[in-house]
């Protein structure tokens, strides 16, 4: 039934991420996309969504909460780069937003470099700080989209951009802390160990 050359490929030590870890990164990325979409749809129903920076803060909160779970479940250098590159490519495929995608990739790389310099994703505050760095960079780069699309001389837009970055930073801190609490609670209950 099976031909002689039909052999699965042999394992190689250079492949640092296992299939299991890569699948987990993919699934949590999908969860991040879905949760952000659901929250964004819900938030658009209320007028407070129009407050400058709030939307970016809430989105940062949701994504960083899930990314915290990702960093704790796969605490390797490169986890956020892979996860956020995946996210960036998914955004590119699903929304066609070039700058949004680029921001996510750059933010992920910066977060991983930061965590690497701090000795990896073992420290909980290191994860939170890496998430804040990611979100600030991602939001800042994503704003280029607006600059290019609008090329406007309306000076107010710069306040919006500053508020978006600030909102993202605050949201990332809160999301990271919420993710930390969530994972601690789940691990104490023996659920997500």
């Amino acid at each position: 039934m099976t031909t002689a050359n039909e052999r699965p490929q042999s394992p190689q030590s250079s492949s640092r991420f296992t299939v299991r870890e890569l699948v987990l990164i993919g699934v949590l990325t999908a969860l991040s996309v879905v949760l952000q979409t659901v929250v964004a749809v819900g938030l658009h129903m209320v007028p407070i969504a129009a407050i400058p920076g709030l939307m970016h803060g809430v989105m940062a909160f949701v994504s960083c909460l899930v990314l915290y779970v990702m960093a704790r479940k796969v605490p390797r250098a490169g986890t956020l780069t892979i996860g956020l590159t995946t996210y960036g490519l998914a955004v590119l495929i699903l929304k066609g937003s070039v700058f949004h995608s680029a921001g996510l990739v750059l933010g992920g790389v910066a977060a991983d470099v930061f965590a690497h310099l701090r000795g990896g994703y073992q420290g909980r505050w290191t994860i939170i700080a890496a998430l804040v760095l990611f979100r600030v960079i991602a939001t800042a780069v994503a704003q280029l989209d607006k600059v290019v699309k609008q090329m406007t001389q309306v000076h107010l837009v710069w306040y919006f951009i500053a508020l978006a970055i600030l909102g993202a930073a605050v949201g990332a801190v809160l999301g990271g802390v919420a993710g930390r609490r969530f994972m601690d609670r789940m691990e104490r209950a023996g659920v997500a160990a």
Binding site: P8, S10, V19, R20, L22, L31, L35, V66
Partner: peptide, 27 residues
Amino acid sequence: TPAVLRSLRLADELACAAETRGMGGVL
């Protein structure tokens, strides 16, 4: 809670399917 935990369970099932369907080693 259910969203994250269901995701982790489904990820585990999908990873098991990947491994038994020949993924592993050199990707």
